[in-house]
Design a binder for these strands. Structure first.
Length: 428
RNA sequence: UGCUCGGUAGCUCAAUUGGCAGAGCGGGUGGCUGUUAACCACUAGGUUGUGGGUUCGAGUCCCACCCGAGCAGCCA
């Protein structure tokens, strides 16, 4: 049985296999902290209640010793989870051959990332990984229930998709190919046969970004569907985010507690999210005495200021067309604006969703490709989608790491993936 | 890529004006029956990021390089 199930076994004898994460001792009584795959818990060892050999063994338990224990589960209000274990018997299954490199007291990120393969064992990091897993399954379940098909798009791509960001070049049998930065263009193709589709996979950006919101390898889910109006796209993203938050609040209270997450902040996330145009967002910034020029994208400080005004994620739509991707459809009422939407997470976690309506007219799309100084030849297959049976469509991408960072309330997205890839870190 | 800050024990950090290399944690040994990053005593543990320079003397000052962090741009 697992530590997270202790609440169902109060005053009963339980058997648990766990890893030692710390110990304290007062001579005739030891306090051992153990973790298993579900949570962590304190084990109390009284000299009178165990065999002398077991008591002596407990004196020498180092971090990451693996023990199998028989103990009584007891309610304990002082404990973080509300329970502790009173040891009856213990068997040592594995003794570390060396001192564990990671101390219990705080260490710096450089050191911890060098030992990432061990750091992930800490209660905090494990809690984040469990939450990430649930975020992903919540997304998949939500889309499945809405009738979406999962279509996996290629990682190797022949050329730039969006043309804006730097790509990783790979040698592909003596040919230069690139790691995908998005699956969207491919799923515009699959949407024209299956209608509601999504891809879920890693994306790669070779930009030399060194911020707490960037990784070179990150994961995103990208739904795409036919006859999508901007409103439909926002509704789908909103429903997805609400579902994610509900699932985490329902199933991961222990993990949120381990992370010291302020749950009231997540409980305030309710549909409908506030929606405003880019112009209205500029106005909001002006009211807060922040000057932002029309025509420029918001930077991190502006995004933080906007999201601080709301308890739920905020949807900002109709950005200037010039700062958005070439495939973004222009607003019929004002062609300087794009039918695109960004959703900013609360508490300054920044953009977690970007999406919009795609341009379905081949003439306009060709013009846009030229304006962005992209090579038309690279996009012939994409233009075919407009040549044959073109209909309005759209979708969005949701960044997994940024979403998990927000849900968990952690500062840097490198902790939201088991083995983060950043500009200068490829090991372990 | 730019700006700012940093690199001293396994980890977190001190070291006054340029003058003996230090502490806490972690490890080891001993003590303590309710500890929550427990505490107390003893003990082991150092090529001060690398290379050069100034100086009687450099962790400290100068130059170059390497590495890291924060922020920005770009974006999920």
């Amino acid at each position: 049985m697992r530590i997270s199930e202790l609440k169902d076994f109060v005053d009963q004898q339980v058997e648990i296999t766990g890893w030692v994460i710390g110990k304290r001792s007062s001579g005739k009584i030891h306090f051992i902290l153990i973790r298993d795959s579900s949570a962590f818990c304190q084990v109390v060892v009284a000299e009178k209640e165990v065999h002398p050999e077991v008591f002596e063994q407990c004196k020498h338990l180092n971090i990451e010793t693996v023990i199998k224990i028989k103990a009584l589960a007891v309610e304990e209000p002082r404990a973080k989870l509300g329970y502790e274990l009173h040891l009856k018997d213990m068997e040592v299954l594995s003794t570390p051959v060396d001192e564990y490199p990671i101390p219990r007291k705080p260490s710096g990120p450089d050191f911890l990332l060098n030992y990432r393969h061990l750091w992930i064992r800490s209660p905090r990091q494990s809690a984040i990984m469990r939450i990430r897993s649930k975020v992903i399954s919540a997304i998949r379940n939500y889309l499945d229930q809405q009738g979406f098909y999962c279509v996996d798009t290629p990682i190797f791509t022949a050329s730039s998709c969006e043309g804006t960001t730097t790509l990783f070049k790979v040698d592909y049998f003596n040919q230069d190919v690139f790691l995908a930065q998005t699956g969207q263009l491919y799923n515009e193709a699959t949407a024209l046969c299956l209608d509601k589709v999504y891809c879920f996979g890693p994306s790669f950006r070779a930009e030399k970004s060194k911020t707490r919101r960037h990784l070179t390898e990150f994961w995103q889910v990208e739904p795409e569907f036919l006859f999508a109006r901007l409103e439909d796209i926002i509704n789908l993203a909103e429903g997805m985010i609400v579902r994610i938050v509900e699932e985490i609040l329902t199933h991961h209270q222990i993990d949120l507690k381990i992370l010291d997450r302020d749950i009231s902040k997540l409980e305030q996330v309710k549909a409908p999210f506030p929606r405003m145009t880019y112009d209205q967002a500029l106005q909001l910034l002006q009211e807060k005495n922040i000057s932002a020029e029309w025509g420029k994208d918001f930077g991190a400080p502006e995004e933080t200021k906007i999201s601080e005004s709301f308890n739920s994620p905020v949807c900002i739509h109709r950005y200037p067309s010039a700062i958005k991707a070439f495939y973004m459809k222009q607003a019929p009422e004002d062609n300087r604006l794009a039918l695109g939407v960004d959703i900013l997470a609360p508490e300054g976690y920044g953009e977690i969703v970007g999406g919009g309506v795609r341009e379905e007219d081949i003439a306009i799309l060709e013009q846009r490709i030229d304006q962005h100084q992209l090579n038309r030849d690279d996009y012939q297959w994409y233009l075919d989608l407009r040549r044959y049976g073109s209909v309005p469509h759209g979708g969005f991408g949701l960044g997994i790491e940024r979403t998990v960072a927000w849900i968990c309330g952690i500062h840097h997205i490198r902790e939201t993936i088991a083995f983060p890839r950043t500009i200068d870190r490829i090991k372990p």
